[in-house]
């Protein structure tokens, strides 16, 4: 399981899990799951287009991920963003099918862009991952507080000098960056599962953002490590294990939250306090 050719898989998986855990925290906080699905999924069309005109698929992925995120955040400003996301995704995938119909050679790789090929990662692919991953983390670190306030209290953000619309565009770019680095390795499907499941579970368990982010990263790491190991042992696809474990972790998180709500000790004290003030 730790042979030479597997080392790259462990490395790539670890990097992707860290990025997905951090970026995913904001995906869930902002209620952007659909965007997190649409950007990686639609970006594959860019790879198809890049192959058609003979450039590096990574560039095509990047252009489509960023372009898609930008289109959605700009058009979504004055309309329901889920509607715009759905339309843009369909349009990107439609373009993908158009590109594929123009060239005859690429069909097989579509499958790997969707479902990933983490067990076949080469060490050449690790370098751009690390660079783009570092860019993502730096951007999130720099914009941590504006992201937080624009995501939770968008109406109140302007009075703190934060423009939520600009944050929406910037976050779209962060997501595009995370997508571009990970989709060629782990596939759109697996990236999406990691962006949603572990971060959503983490927030059920802790009520502090500073602990929720590390916990989300930890859960993503556990998910991907366990999945690589299980895939190695069983020879089943990694994607299946990642999605199944993410879903399990999510359900477990909800269970914890349900248990917590059943014992609302702190609520009672608050109510007593409120009554005291009223009296």
């Amino acid at each position: 399981m730790f042979e030479d050719f597997m080392v790259n898989a462990w490395e790539a998986g670890t990097i992707v899990a860290i990025i997905a855990g951090v970026v995913g925290f904001f995906v869930v906080l902002r209620g952007n799951s659909f965007l997190a699905h649409a950007v990686p999924h639609g970006a594959f069309a860019g790879a198809a287009g890049a192959v058609l005109i003979g450039v590096d698929p990574l560039i095509g992925l990047g252009v489509f991920a960023a372009g898609g995120a930008l289109t959605i955040s700009v058009l979504g400003r004055r309309a329901r963003s889920d509607v715009i996301t759905a339309l843009s995704l369909a349009m990107m995938l439609g373009l993908g099918s158009f590109f594929l119909s123009r060239s005859s050679e690429y069909s097989a790789e579509v499958f790997s862009l969707l479902f990933g090929q983490i067990l076949g990662v080469s060490s050449v692919q690790i370098v751009p991952m690390i660079v783009l991953g570092a860019v993502c983390l730096a951007a999130v670190g720099l914009l941590y507080r504006p992201l937080l306030i624009a995501s939770v209290l968008p109406e109140m953000a302007p009075s703190r000098g934060v423009n939520p619309q600009i944050i929406t565009v910037v976050f779209g770019f962060i997501l595009a960056c995370a997508t571009t680095m990970s989709v060629p390795i782990v596939g759109a499907l697996l990236m999406f599962a990691l962006l949603v499941g572990p971060p959503a579970a983490a927030r059920f368990v802790t009520r502090r953002p500073v602990t929720a982010i590390p916990l989300s990263v930890l859960l993503a790491l556990v998910t991907i490590w366990a999945s690589i190991a299980l895939a190695y042992v069983s020879d089943w696809p990694v994607g299946f294990f990642v999605t199944a474990i993410s879903a399990l972790i999510y359900v477990a998180g909800r269970g914890v939250s349900a248990l917590r709500r059943r014992v609302p000790a702190s609520r009672n004290t608050a109510r007593v306090e409120a009554e005291a003030v009223a009296a």
Partner: peptide, 24 residues
Amino acid sequence: LKGRDVTTGVVLSLGMGVTALFLY
């Protein structure tokens, strides 16, 4: 309404994972 997108996302990704297994 809030958090509904997460639920949808989890079900969607689980379904796609199972698809990957079936296709395999």
